[in-house]
Design a protein around this nucleic acid. Structure first.
Ligand SMILES: [Zn+2]
Ligand SMILES: [Zn+2]
Ligand SMILES: [Zn+2]
Ligand SMILES: [Zn+2]
Lengths: 132, 132
DNA sequence: ATCAATTGCGTTATGCTATAACGTGTGCAA
DNA sequence: TTGCACACGTTATAGCATAACGCAATTGAT
């Protein structure tokens, strides 16, 4: 997916996520953009919907939050499944990709005649700094 | 984790999940148990909390729902990471375990000095019947 | 037996997450 | 011009989860 020119709202939401040092909830994003005219959750959710579609933002299902893609050069949609390690203490997220994991999971579901559309891999725990 | 005797509420919630043919939300469980005296969400969430702790129920983060463990004989907590294939059309869930995936993910996070606590792997898509 | 700690339970209220539904304006192509 | 697609704004509503309070039953020392 090639990323088209972002609209004003999409740019605002993306900038907030890029500048943040961790994942943000939609309502946190909303609060950060009130000074820029945002008034309602839908303004955030609609922008997020597009940013997710373009692959420049990821949704973290296990914490109902959103994060800017850590590999803006690559195309996360093309290099297979994305996995996240999420620190439950400081909120830091590490994003990574592993073709072997991808291959194993896809082989299994294909064996079940299951047609995969979207895969979530999220590891919650403690980052090095917080585990010390 | 060995499973102690379930309390009345825990048994009611577990029975509902076992008899269901797919994952259920907490509020759906609540509705199914109103005839048995359930009146508030907390009655469901408190039972679920224990059932999750005992490993007899899993939470599906990507759809905010809960499902009875498909491998009641095994101990899902001891045989590594659990993965789910969730049909977005009919709601059917397949649960499986793969040590190779487990090892790859754990090796990666250990390399990052990350201490994993809980891992979510959920593949949404279409089951064989619904993809036809 | 008694006391304290733990656990489960019921209830009310609240907070957080997400979408439905309606209307407006703008740009572009038929 | 007309029709369509798309972004946007607003209000209202739906869906998911927990805080805080009090009470009852259980357990496990002392
Ligand atoms: Zn990415
Ligand atoms: Zn941390
Ligand atoms: Zn299981
Ligand atoms: Zn299906």
């Amino acid at each position: 997916m090639t990323t088209p020119q972002l609209t004003k709202n999409q740019s605002l939401v993306f900038d907030v996520l890029e500048k943040a040092d961790g994942p943000l909830s939609a309502y946190t994003i909303l609060d950060k953009l009130r000074d820029h005219g945002f008034r309602a959750p839908l303004q955030v959710y609609r922008a997020l919907e597009k940013l997710l579609e373009y692959g420049v933002v990821h949704r973290l299902e296990s914490i109902n939050s959103f994060v800017a893609c850590a590999h803006p050069g690559d195309d996360c949609h093309s290099h297979g499944i994305v996995a996240f390690a999420i620190c439950e203490s400081c909120g830091q997220v590490m994003e990574f990709h592993d073709h072997e994991v991808d291959h194993r999971l896809m082989a299994w579901v294909r064996g079940q005649k299951f047609k995969p559309e979207k895969t979530t891999i999220e590891i919650r725990g403690l980052c090095e700094a917080c585990a010390a």
